[in-house]
């Protein structure tokens, strides 16, 4: 494992921890999109179908369990916790799941490396992860006033994506036959979705101001 991959996984982990910290300690999920969180739970559930059958490393198994556990617990908190769920911006978070899930499923059935159930589900999870942040970005755009933790959560997710691209470049030059078009293209699309957010995040950081998104 190279340094970019490790740093990418760590920022991904940090993003989830920041979100759990916000929800668990402040008992608020204001500004967090439940739609995006539900999509991530679906992403991990479909991607890690091989968790008990394909052993890669202890690191991989533990991280998979953490991502599965954290994504489902965030969804549980936002839906059912008696205090947290009251802070959820339900009226603003109106993005429709099937609008993203259906095209990704069709695409996974058409474009995959191997037409088996597990491979199609794995491919579907990659396509869905690429666009799962959209409800969150729409919600940020609508609420505009973003608290620090929500801003940091999205920033860390974007950093994770950027580091994964560096990881692929590194692997391409150091590992023979490391060519994975599906992973790369969906990963690139996902990273590009953060570009706009990153621009405003950088501006607010540079000017030492609270993050505001334009209407």
């Amino acid at each position: 494992m190279n340094i970019f991959r490790l740093a990418g996984d760590m920022t991904h982990l940090a993003s989830v921890l920041v979100l759990l910290l916000k929800i668990h300690t402040i008992k608020s999920c204001a500004g967090v999109s439940l739609k995006t969180q539900e999509l991530y739970a679906l992403v991990f559930a479909c991607r890690y179908l091989d968790i008990f059958t394909n052993f890669v490393s202890l690191y991989n198994t533990v991280m998979k369990l953490i991502f599965l556990g954290s994504s489902f617990s965030i969804v549980w908190y936002m839906r059912y916790h008696k205090v947290v769920r009251r802070s959820y911006d339900k009226d603003q978070d109106t993005f429709r799941h099937y609008f993203l899930v259906l095209p990704c499923l069709v695409l996974a059935l058409l474009i995959n490396e191997k037409f088996t159930f597990k491979e199609v589900m794995w491919t579907f999870s990659l396509y869905l992860e690429a666009v799962a942040i959209l409800p969150q970005l729409v919600l940020l755009q609508r609420t505009r006033n973003i608290d620090n933790l929500t801003g940091q959560y999205v920033f860390l997710l974007g950093a994770y994506r950027g580091l994964y691209i560096l990881n692929w470049i590194y692997r391409y030059f150091t590992e023979p036959h490391f060519v994975h078009w599906i992973t790369w293209i969906s990963g690139l699309v996902q990273t590009l979705l953060y570009a706009d957010f990153f621009y405003y995040y950088y501006q607010s950081w540079k000017n030492n101001q609270k993050l505001h998104l334009p209407a």
């Binding site: 991904h12 890669v56 490393s57 991989n60 490396e113 191997k114 994964y164 036959h177």
Partner: peptide, 10 residues
């Protein structure tokens, strides 16, 4: 490689 079935990334 094309016969990769083990996905080693998260």
């Amino acid at each position: 490689s094309n016969d990769r079935v083990v996905h080693d990334e998260l």
